[in-house]
Amino acid sequence: MKKGTLRQILLITDGCSNQGEDPVAMAALAREHGMTVNVIGVLDENERTDGLKEIENIALSGGGIHQLVYAKQLSHTVQMVTRKAMTQTIQGFIHKELQSILGHDKEIEDLPPDKRGQVVEVVDELGETMDLEVLIMIDTSASMQHKLPTVEDALLDLSISLHSRIGENEYALYAFPGKRKQVERLMDWTPILKDIHTIFPKLTTGGITPTGPALKEAIDAYQKKRSKRGLLNDGYIEESSS
């Protein structure tokens, strides 16, 4: 059985967008493309959380998970959010499948508890073996400057967790704002998240937070990746059929 790929956009930010498209709309668009948008808000100690409603809204409309954390807990949170979002997406698939079998208004809770165990086993199995693509989008606005070393640690930690799975992983890394553009690609799709300690020190931080354009760029990046793969697949089919 071919197991398909989970596609996630992981947005790490610390505040509200202030330039370009509405990020909540872009997240909804990403969802339409079959991606999940997860958002992690990195707080300073004693920072109030009331200005961060946007973070929640982006995740809601992107079908993902959001979490606000202090920099210290970032490592644990990034890997947890990624894994939870995977589980949530898979549960979504399973839920649809169940509805097509049991009827439209049925939920997993309508199954007797003993039967639910088997559903959970399937979800666990898929979470462990499905391939995963994560596009990581890092806010490099000025207020993020001193949090970047922690973000770096968190990403390394994420790769430890994901590489302990059986399924394959691919990562891409972007920053917003970029040096000259709103969004800058730091790392193209790669199966191993390494050498980020050589990239991070070079990052310059800017004043604006173009979250919407960043998400738009992420969708484009996924589209390009897919079309590239499409071409490769076509080439393969032609070869094998001739």
Binding site: P113, R116, V119
Partner: peptide, 12 residues
């Protein structure tokens, strides 16, 4: 119910 069920799977 999914996470509760998951724990029960292990306990069983």
């Amino acid at each position: 119910s999914m996470s509760i069920t998951s724990e029960v799977n292990v306990l069983k």
